[in-house]
């Protein structure tokens, strides 16, 4: 191809790789890193204000406490990136936990119980995906329906009674660690890394971003957007099932009552992580840092002796502030 009049060399940015200077000048970069920067600032403030905050024991406790929310947040991120939202996430976790508890209560092996918990989560994800992708019901309504249905199913299945679970496997899972890394943290880290890989290094990830960014254009290019949406809900459901195992291991019982703060905090973490609620742009690391940020915030405020009653107010402020910041930047 004739290139004599093509000043390619005069275009420094035409490189195959992106330089750091280019990355730093992209506002998207700062939006994605908001949560990480805020987290660092918070750690420094709490570290100065309360010496106990930076103790090994407390850091470990914060990370373990954050693991559950991080896993749920990764699931929520995939759904929100398609332009949807999964309101059923916390109920799905509860429902999957109840399935786990009932299998154990009826003498089933713990391995099978864990497997069925994940399948129970996937089942809700499947229903969500089918309702949204093929039923053409808005995400908000469809998952509001499954939120209610899954929490009802959890009550019916357990007869409203918590089931205490004595399992060395779950106890090990909750308290053990691999070297310095508690299993909970290890699992959350793996989920984040796999999520990041799936989003940015596979064709599925690109098609997911395309579906959320502009579904009509994606369809015009032959991307099967319905299948992509279904896959995102399946991912969220499966991760809710995984979170159910960790949740059950942590409290030593299958609890049939839904803790809705997990749902709200997963959405808050996604917002803090710079993901657009309209879909199509965001990262996995950002929301994961957002989930960690929320946990650190509550932990630090507790150490500083702020009444529990004030904590939701501070969390709310942080989320709104982050949303304003992102809006201003874009």
């Amino acid at each position: 191809m004739e290139q004599s009049n093509t000043p390619v060399t005069a275009l420094p940015a035409q490189a195959e790789r992106l330089s750091w200077r280019e990355r730093l000048s992209d506002p998207e970069f700062w939006i994605n890193w908001t949560a990480v920067i805020a987290l660092a600032v918070l750690v420094i403030i709490f570290g100065i204000a309360s010496p106990a905050f930076l103790s090994f024991g407390n850091i470990r406790a914060v990370l373990v406490a954050a693991a559950l929310l991080v896993i749920l947040t990764v699931g929520q991120t995939f759904v929100i990136l398609t332009g949807g939202i999964d309101l059923s996430l916390a109920s799905t976790m509860t429902w999957a936990g109840v399935v786990l508890g009932q299998v154990v209560a009826h003498g089933g092996p713990i391995g099978l119980a864990c497997l069925l918990a994940i399948i129970a989560g996937l089942l809700v994800g499947l229903i969500n995906g089918l309702l949204v992708a093929w039923g053409r019901i808005p995400d908000f309504i469809a998952t509001l329906g499954t939120l209610s249905a899954a929490s009802g199913a959890a009550l019916i299945f357990s007869n409203g009674e918590p089931v205490t679970i004595v399992s060395t496997f779950l106890l090990q899972l909750a308290t053990g660690s691999l070297g310095p890394l508690p299993y909970f943290v290890l699992i959350a880290l793996l989920v984040v890394l796999l999520g990041h890989f799936l989003l940015f290094y596979t064709r599925f990830g690109t098609h997911l971003l395309a579906t959320g960014g502009d579904a009509e254009a994606a369809r015009a290019m032959g991307i099967r957007t319905a299948g992509i949406k279904l896959a995102a809900y399946l991912l969220a459901g499966g991760l809710a099932g995984l979170a159910a195992i960790l949740f059950t291991a942590r409290i030593g019982a299958a609890e049939p009552a839904v803790d809705t703060s997990y749902l709200l905090n997963s959405v808050a973490a996604v917002v803090l992580g710079g993901v657009s609620l309209f879909g199509g742009r965001g990262t996995i690391a950002g929301p994961a840092a957002g989930a960690l940020l929320l946990t650190v915030l509550v932990n630090g405020l507790t150490l500083l002796g702020l009444s529990q009653f004030y904590q939701p107010v501070v969390v709310g402020l942080a989320v709104v502030l982050a949303a304003l910041l992102v809006r201003y930047w874009r």
Partner: peptide, 27 residues
């Protein structure tokens, strides 16, 4: 075209060059 994707991602939209790893199509 997708506004939030890069130029090269749009050029290869749904024609991505991939390497197969089990069920995954790695870019």
């Amino acid at each position: 075209m997708i506004e939030d994707l890069t130029v090269w991602q749009n050029l290869f939209l749904n024609r991505e060059r991939v390497k197969r790893l089990g069920p995954l199509a790695i870019l």
